[in-house]
Design a protein around this nucleic acid. Sequence first.
DNA 1: CTACAACCTGTGATTTTCCTGAGAAACGCA
DNA 2: TGCGTTTCTCAGGAAAATCACAGGTTGTAG
Lengths: 246, 246
Amino acid sequence: MTTTSPQGRTELLRPDGSPVRVLVVDDEPSITELLSMALRYEGWQIRSAGDGTGAVQTAREFRPDAVVLDMMLPDMDGLTVLGRLRRELPDVPVLFLTAKDAVEDRIAGLTAGGDDYVTKPFSLEEVVARLRGLIRRSGAADRRSDSVLVVGDLTLDEDSHEVSRAGEGIHLTATEFELLRFLMRNPRRVLSKAQILDRVWSYDFGGQANVVELYISYLRRKIDAGREPMIHTRRGAGYLIKPAAS
Amino acid sequence: MTTTSPQGRTELLRPDGSPVRVLVVDDEPSITELLSMALRYEGWQIRSAGDGTGAVQTAREFRPDAVVLDMMLPDMDGLTVLGRLRRELPDVPVLFLTAKDAVEDRIAGLTAGGDDYVTKPFSLEEVVARLRGLIRRSGAADRRSDSVLVVGDLTLDEDSHEVSRAGEGIHLTATEFELLRFLMRNPRRVLSKAQILDRVWSYDFGGQANVVELYISYLRRKIDAGREPMIHTRRGAGYLIKPAAS
DNA sequence: CTACAACCTGTGATTTTCCTGAGAAACGCA
DNA sequence: TGCGTTTCTCAGGAAAATCACAGGTTGTAG
């Protein structure tokens, strides 16, 4: 089931209307903090654990709809944790967190069962998007929820990564796509450059804050070119997207 | 009976609409785990057993529509297990798992009865495809479900392994065929290189991830050569296939 | 009206990602 | 066993994406 919050955000709900529950497992408190805040902001209920033992215990009583699991835990191997989690919750989808270079060599089968992974350092939008996808496909959320965002005559498909305005297909790069997704998930709402940087770029991004301006510029060229603009600047506050009409 | 899931995937169902039931028997927990995950993702109901005794017991009460059976079990010979299974479930199709160098004459004899086998290490796509075939032919699922995948003017027959585009036959190697099948079972959906590797290559593949790029390249040469391309790269995300039209 | 801050965007360097040719190794089959 | 086919590694090159920098433009406070 999906519902639309007063701010215009669309959020996932379980079939009975209660909020989605997510368990976050990582040994670095800064990471669990970061993720917990971001996921709570989605309207989800979050619990966290710092090791495998805690993860299995918490899973048993919390019964989450999805798990975010760091592959590198102090007390046990990632796959061992996975096995024990599966014994408790056979159908729960898992989003693995893994180091960039670890994904190259050894861990096969991460996506075999419909699970997914992101590499550290990740962007919050990426984690949220993948979690939404996992939850949607697992059937924990209502099936009517689909993967297409619509604002005015602009549509963005999270599965096929296709974007079109007024029926015309538009090619976006990965970063442009994530930025647009973030804007479209918060239509008519002003998002500050800091917010955008925090959500769309990886948490360790150390560059200049004006990349946001740059990418807004790119997006405008592709989305608004020769049309009624949908992306607007609120000087001193940030940016927002809204249907061209109003 | 077949139905189309929210993801656009087509899944097998029994005539009464309930999910297909599959029993997985292997003594290595990592194998039963991997298979259970992958088969559950097909929308099937899975039980697993680690030895012959457990297999027969579980079969008795679970009454699966198909069985995946490792021929090398700790407590009894594969043929013995098969015999006892047959006593419980005379008509259930069995997919044998066997080591590559195992005596294939015995297996060959067994598969005459409509059963099938794959050698370890297998790819998940291969197991799923063969299971689908077995279930379809056994009549446990609706017969109308056929074995031909179609995307645009491209068709792939899972039974005869024939592929053609715009009526013109195309010869593919085994790996190319499995890759194309995976793409075609998920049309218009971006599949990451990791996903492709996990499903199409054997679970013990330890090589470079760029084999995927290589085989995509091979496929393009055969499928898209001189035509409107159907296989598309989403840089930084993966690949997808879709009809040439859109 | 002016001056400043905020924002926009062209240019190009750097990095990342992807494609594909060549050849080695493994495989299948006669 | 020998030969053709298939699979895969390696590496060079092409293409695309990302980002810093800097000069230009616009909005706004005073």
